[in-house]
Design a protein around this nucleic acid. Structure first.
Lengths: 139, 139
DNA sequence: TTGCGTGCAAAGGTTTTGCATGGCA
DNA sequence: TGCCATGCAAAACCTTTGCACGCAA
């Protein structure tokens, strides 16, 4: 599997690649690809394959139950923690010394060996936080 | 709902309370409660209610897809991050200054406002790490 | 006695699987 | 042409819901 180059695979990968900070549910992928979209079951199959090959990553969805997928190739995601915005779903890569710093602290003070690639911090990204602050305003 | 004191509710809560570091899936709860266990749908209903009242917490399961529940009352879980062992499923509460330290760093350097209560770090707890090391041994 | 909680069964939603067809190399 | 990938439909799975009965208060 994954040997041939097909339309479905190409367009799916193009979509995720075009917005590397965004994550997509199977439903969103299927919808966004429009009329020439592969069927839902194929989207599932493609995503599974791409996760297996490491080209995309799978995260639990912070909003609804379920899972989302995000382009991840060449990002060395094994080494760093990720942050997901609970409002817009964007996923950011923590690229700084905090990764090592935190890992060290957890290991030494708590006896916990972190797996950064699967650890997900939830919260609000800058723009969603500002939007929300604006909304609340003088409440 | 949640007005009456019933066997199902009592035994479910007792189970989770007896192992506050462990998390349980609906299936595990149902199985562990044995012959006098409430039906699966009741376990779902009880868990939903208890999550709503804050007595237990719901986390995505690191192992299989799905969710697990853990006793959480009086732990002020809103304020701190949690660590889940990918091997045994135990969930630990990060109770130290790192919570504030990390939150500050993420906010200042990355513009990310963390929601600690929903953030989950995955990895291996001390005992599972040691077991695994022993297994691998001289590989 | 009142009405909430439960069990059972059915429904709902999501993901997986089987099989025949179509497309890539 | 051979084999992989896809579509469709059915199945499997998990979770929720409806309804009638039993139990707590």
């Amino acid at each position: 599997m994954g040997v041939y180059k097909t339309n479905g695979k190409e367009s799916l990968l193009a979509l995720l690649k075009s917005q590397p900070d965004r994550s997509f549910s199977v439903e969103q992928i299927h919808d966004k690809l429009g009329p020439d979209a592969p069927g839902v079951s194929t989207v599932y199959r493609l995503c599974s394959n791409l996760v297996r090959t490491g080209e995309i990553k799978k995260y639990p969805d912070s909003a609804k139950e379920g899972y989302v997928f995000q382009y991840a190739k060449d990002l060395h995601c094994e080494a760093h923690i990720h942050m997901q915005c609970e409002s817009c779903g964007a996923i950011f890569h923590l690229s700084c010394d905090m990764n090592e710093h935190l890992a060290e602290h957890l290991s030494e003070d708590h006896g916990f060996i972190i797996d950064p690639s699967r650890s997900l911090l939830l919260g609000l990204c800058r723009s969603c936080y500002e939007k929300r602050s604006a909304h609340v305003g003088n409440a």
